[in-house]
Design a protein around this nucleic acid. Structure first.
Length: 100
DNA sequence: CATATGACGTGAC
DNA sequence: AGTCACGCCATAT
């Protein structure tokens, strides 16, 4: 596993239960600058063995980046942690987002 | 080696 | 509120 992915994964593992962070946030916290896309790619290549709370990572607009089933699964996982969604399928960032 | 493709972000329209 | 274009860059083919 590349250093890059390890760094991204370890950063995501720091997200507290019940909170969420954006891809961009993870990129910055991991010291990757504005390259949010790398975070997305790292998660795409993620395997269950990595034990990473991938569901706590959402888009900057408060929406889930997955389509179809993936979206449903992630949403369920988040709701089970107490994360609320608005009618538009967006996350109520106000107090759930990882602090700056 | 050359293209294409994305679990992104931002800005234009 | 959608859609589109673009920069970005690791992987896939």
């Amino acid at each position: 596993m590349s250093e890059l992915y390890e760094k991204i994964y370890s950063t995501i593992r720091k997200i507290p239960h019940g909170k969420v962070a954006t891809y961009g946030q993870i990129a910055r916290l991991a010291g990757l600058g504005p390259h949010a896309r790398l975070v997305g790619y790292a998660l795409h290549a993620l395997t269950p063995e990595q034990r990473v709370p991938w569901h706590r990572v959402v888009g900057a607009n408060g929406k889930i980046s997955l389509r179809g089933e993936g979206m449903t699964i992630q949403r369920k996982l988040l709701e089970s942690e107490g994360v609320e969604f608005t009618g538009g399928g967006k996350i109520a960032f106000s107090r759930l987002r990882l602090s700056r």
